[in-house]
């Protein structure tokens, strides 16, 4: 690993200031960034840890829905969101392994936008709002392709607000070595319709399967997507699965998620 200065501000204002310098990089748990630094795939001159900022931590239910501080670890979301949004809590409780869940954070996961990460599916599938130090960004505008987001340079995610659906579930097909989703599907049923978000499958990162949304909005049953097909075009192909295999998984996992939704 190349060396860098390490700072750990205790307020959002100090973090923004620290990130405005040349070569500064945010660290929010570091379960992806630390291995990346070890491989010398990133060379920041200053690493700014965001996990010491009290105002960016915690889970609370409000008028707009369930708000989660960006520096809240997965294990805390799994525990504290279980009553208000069990589908999301279960997603958080299935990320990585217990030690990873004690360090990795929702903000870190969303800022990185790994194409096989779980949280992007939960956030896009819920139609959540990403709150930064500057603005609020709708999930539909936030995810812009593999490892690409609407965040500006130096902009920090401070929290995420989730409207709570009537029913939801996330089902992923694990890549057993990395425990990332080979493909994962989040289904959320709201009074106004159903949202279906797919991670791990597309070369463009997380996406909404709009045909399934229309079918499930008319009839929220696994059989409703039976007649639909998913194109393997633009799906990820690697040694773990072909594009056709992932396209197949999208439909299978959507049906399982509908059956599991509660």
């Amino acid at each position: 690993m190349h060396n860098f200065d390490f700072v750990k501000p205790s307020s959002i204002a100090d973090a923004v200031k620290a990130l405005s310098g040349d070569g500064a990089q945010a660290l929010s748990g570091g379960q992806t960034l630390t291995p990346t630094l070890k491989q010398r795939l990133a060379q920041p001159s200053v690493l700014v840890s965001l996990t010491g900022i009290a105002e960016m931590k915690g889970v609370c239910m409000g008028a707009d829905g369930l708000s989660i501080g960006a520096a809240t670890p997965h294990a805390v979301v799994a525990r504290e969101a279980a009553k208000d949004y069990p589908g999301l809590a279960a997603l958080a409780g299935g990320i990585g392994d217990p030690a990873v869940r004690n360090r990795g954070t929702i903000g870190g996961s969303l800022a990185n936008n790994d194409p096989a990460a779980c949280y992007p599916a939960g956030v896009l599938g819920s139609g959540a709002t990403i709150v930064t130090n500057k603005r609020k960004i709708a999930a539909d505008d936030y995810f812009q392709g593999m490892f690409t987001t609407a965040l500006d340079e130096g902009e920090i995610i401070t929290g995420v607000t989730f409207p709570v659906p009537q029913k939801a579930a996330y089902v992923k097909f694990n890549q057993p070595a990395s425990r990332f989703a080979l493909t994962g599907v989040f289904v959320a049923k709201f009074a106004g319709g159903v949202r279906v978000a797919v991670t791990g499958a597309s070369n463009n990162g997380v996406f909404r399967w709009t045909e399934a949304e229309a079918a499930l909005s008319a009839n929220f049953a696994a059989a409703a997507v039976e007649g639909l097909t998913v194109s393997p075009e633009d799906m990820i192909g690697d040694l773990h699965g072909t594009p056709e295999y992932r396209a197949h998984l999208v439909k299978v996992l959507t049906k399982r998620a509908v059956a599991a939704a509660h």
Partner: peptide, 15 residues
Amino acid sequence: VDGKAVKSCTMFALD
């Protein structure tokens, strides 16, 4: 670390 299991190879000493 503060009672929680973590992978110490994936946490910086200063954190």
